[in-house]
């Protein structure tokens, strides 16, 4: 109870400063189409567009920063930016340390892609995934051999060069890759992981969380969010009802 009160006190103090302050949006910049660095060297992608729209609606000044995936949460909790908007699925583990807004992207399917016809769940399958993702944790539990890479790019490269039998990643990340590579196709069943993608925030930033939730709700209501999802992820993408 005491910690709750203190957290609330901190939150009120923080809000007084928030009004004129800039909200710093942390992202990875290496996970197209969610977020990536475009050819002009700027942060671009679905999340950039959603984030900017959210900031406009909430009347916040937002500044985008990119940060390595591995240290993206420690840098949020130590205050180097105020939000994580980096395709981060809401999971119980993460929720213990940071807070999430309501999802701005529905629980997305994760999928296996491979250059051959294989069963990604079998014990002798070698499946590549990005280190420290829910997909990596899933592969470790599935019984297949997990092969971990620092970036999703390297995991895809490993499948192409035969180092791994399959890659397990967000389906939306894999769709353009599979579409453009005739050798690669989806194998096995899609798996639904996580509770959707939300904006990560410090637990003490209740005010900011409420502001973003409101903005997300309004974007869901007037259909802008669904429009953006189909724009970036194609007509078949899962949208909010």
């Amino acid at each position: 109870m005491k910690t709750l009160l203190l957290a609330a006190a901190a939150a009120t103090l923080a809000t007084s400063a928030m009004a004129q302050d800039v909200v710093r949006m942390g992202t990875e910049g290496a996970y197209p189409p969610y977020n990536f660095i475009n050819d002009d060297g700027e942060i671009d992608g679905f999340e950039r567009e959603v984030g900017d729209e959210l900031c406009t609606r909430a009347e916040l000044t937002c500044e985008w920063v990119s940060n390595d995936w591995d240290s993206i949460i420690p840098n949020l909790t130590s205050g180097n930016y105020d939000t994580i908007i980096a395709g981060m699925s809401i999971t119980a583990e993460r929720d213990e340390v940071i807070d999430f807004t309501d999802p701005y992207f529905p629980p997305a399917a994760s999928a296996y892609a491979s250059t051959m016809d294989m069963d990604p769940m079998s014990a002798d399958a070698v499946v590549a995934a990005q280190t420290n993702t829910i997909q990596a944790a899933h592969v470790a539990e599935s019984g297949a051999t997990l092969l971990e890479f620092a970036t999703p790019d390297e995991a895809v490269a490993a499948v192409r060069n035969g180092e791994a039998d399959a890659i397990f990643a967000d389906k939306d990340f894999l769709v353009p890759i599979v579409d453009e590579d005739s050798d690669m196709s989806f194998v096995g069943e899609d798996v639904a992981l996580g509770d959707g993608i939300g904006i990560g925030l410090r637990e003490s930033d209740d005010e900011l969380e409420a502001t973003f939730n409101e903005a997300i709700a309004s974007m869901k209501e007037d259909g802008t969010l669904n429009t953006m999802i189909t724009e970036w992820f194609g007509e078949d993408a899962i949208t909010f009802e």
């Binding site: 957290a7 901190a10 103090l13 420690p74 909790t77 205050g79 410090r202 637990e203």
Partner: peptide, 13 residues
């Protein structure tokens, strides 16, 4: 308010 709250590190603005 405490600076360390769990994993968080909150100093004044």
């Amino acid at each position: 308010a405490p600076i360390r709250q769990g994993a968080e590190f909150n100093v004044c603005p």
